[in-house]
Simulated assay, not measured.
Amino acid sequence: MASQSSPTADARSTVDVLRQRYAQRLPTSLHDLAGPTDGEVELPLHIAWSGLRTYNLHRPRQRMSYYRTVLTEGQRDDLTALLDGDLLVSQWPVLRTLVSRHIRDVWEAVFPALTGGTSAAA
């Protein structure tokens, strides 16, 4: 008889895989995030393969959507090139509600500055 894993074990392993995937993408420091802070930015196709690709960072809703998309789909090089550390910190209180729990947990665990704490990596 084949062994079956429990739904709880499957969910836990999925959570672990997702968290590991997002953790591998993290920059070393929030200071490494040196992306644009204004103007229009066009995301590469590997990040935004459908829908809106060009975002005006002066428009708060577009900026929030841009950050959410990059956090969700970007690799480490994308994060450092497309996100700005200061903007990320200032937007985090709202942005954290727009990204998945896995992304939020990984970023907040490594960068306590996002939640008002301090860290040498911040």
Rank of each mutant, 00 (worst) to 15 (best):
D77L: 10
G74S: 08
G74Y: 07
V70M: 12
L88Q: 07
A81F: 02
R63L: 15
D78V: 02
D77A: 14
Q75H: 13
R76S: 12
S90I: 00
T69Y: 03
Y66R: 04
T80F: 02
M64F: 05
V70K: 12
D77E: 15
Y66N: 08
L71P: 02
D77Q: 14
T69Q: 13
A81T: 12
V70S: 09
L88F: 06
T72G: 06
T72I: 00
G74A: 10
L88I: 08
R68M: 12
E73W: 06
S65H: 15
Q62E: 15
Q62T: 08
L82T: 09
A81W: 02
T80S: 05
Y67Q: 13
L87A: 06
L83C: 07
M64L: 15
D86L: 06
V70D: 12
G85S: 06
M64E: 13
Y66K: 02
L79M: 01
D84G: 00
M64Q: 14
L79H: 05
V70Y: 11
D78I: 06
T80M: 11
S65P: 00
V70R: 11
G85R: 02
D78N: 10
G85D: 04
A81D: 13
T72R: 11
L82Y: 11
T72W: 00
T69D: 05
Y66Q: 07
R63M: 10
E73D: 03
Q91F: 10
M64I: 06
Q75N: 09
L83Q: 04
G74W: 10
G74M: 07
G85C: 04
V89N: 04
L82E: 10
D78E: 07
Y66I: 05
Q75C: 03
V89Y: 00
L79N: 00
L87P: 00
L87W: 03
L71F: 04
M64C: 08
V70G: 12
G85F: 04
S90F: 01
V70E: 10
P60I: 09
R68E: 13
S65E: 15
V89K: 15
Q75F: 11
D78C: 03
T69F: 04
D78H: 11
V70N: 09
D77I: 06
Q91R: 10
Y67R: 01
T80V: 15
R61L: 10
L83N: 03
M64G: 09
R63S: 06
Y67H: 13
Q75I: 05
T69L: 15
L87V: 04
R61Q: 14
D86F: 04
R63G: 00
S65D: 15
L71Y: 04
D77R: 15
R68A: 14
Q91I: 00
R63P: 02
Q91D: 14
S90V: 02
M64H: 05
T69E: 14
Q75G: 07
D77Y: 08
L88N: 06
T80R: 09
